[in-house]
Computed example of a mutant assay.
Amino acid sequence: MTPVQFFKCLSDDTRLRCVTLLHREGKLCVCELTTALDLSQPKISRHLALLRQSGLLLDSREGQWVYYRINPDLPGWAYPLLDEALAAVQASEPFRNDLERLQRMEGRPELAVCC
């Protein structure tokens, strides 16, 4: 991944919100991101597909759910930038709202049976 690709991935608000939540939480499924961002499943899936194709995210199937996580093989320079992005975004109201919706979500896959 080049710096240009990395910053293009984060230049969209929805993708930035997804990536910062994933960076904070470790891994999330589509239903969790849909709930947290209060957006439609097709919109979230479209952005996740772009992030996966760029190499920023990895996906894995666990039962009926597909989980997304930050690619651990990103270049070393990318992680400090993700840390800084998360720190900056965490202070914003949209991120706090996203996190609150995620934490209120009933039936999260890791916590129970969901989706």
Rank of each mutant, 00 (worst) to 15 (best):
T2E: 15
V4P: 00
F6S: 06
K8H: 09
C9I: 04
C9P: 00
S11I: 05
S11M: 04
T14Y: 04
T14A: 09
T14F: 05
V19I: 13
T20E: 03
T20M: 14
L22F: 11
L22C: 09
R24I: 00
E25Y: 03
K27N: 05
L28D: 02
C29F: 06
V30P: 01
C31W: 10
S40Y: 07
P42Y: 08
I44R: 09
I44T: 04
S45Q: 12
A49Q: 13
L50F: 10
Q53S: 14
G55E: 13
L56N: 06
L56M: 11
L58A: 00
R61K: 15
R61C: 07
G63P: 10
W65I: 03
V66I: 15
Y68C: 06
R69Y: 09
P72C: 08
D73I: 01
D73V: 05
G76H: 03
G76R: 07
A78T: 12
Y79L: 15
P80L: 06
L81G: 01
L86D: 02
L86Q: 09
A88W: 09
A88H: 08
Q90Y: 12
F95G: 06
R96C: 04
N97R: 15
N97M: 11
D98E: 02
R101T: 07
Q103I: 06
R104S: 11
R104K: 15
M105R: 14
M105A: 11
M105Y: 11
G107C: 11
G107L: 14
R108W: 10
R108G: 14
C114N: 12
C115I: 01
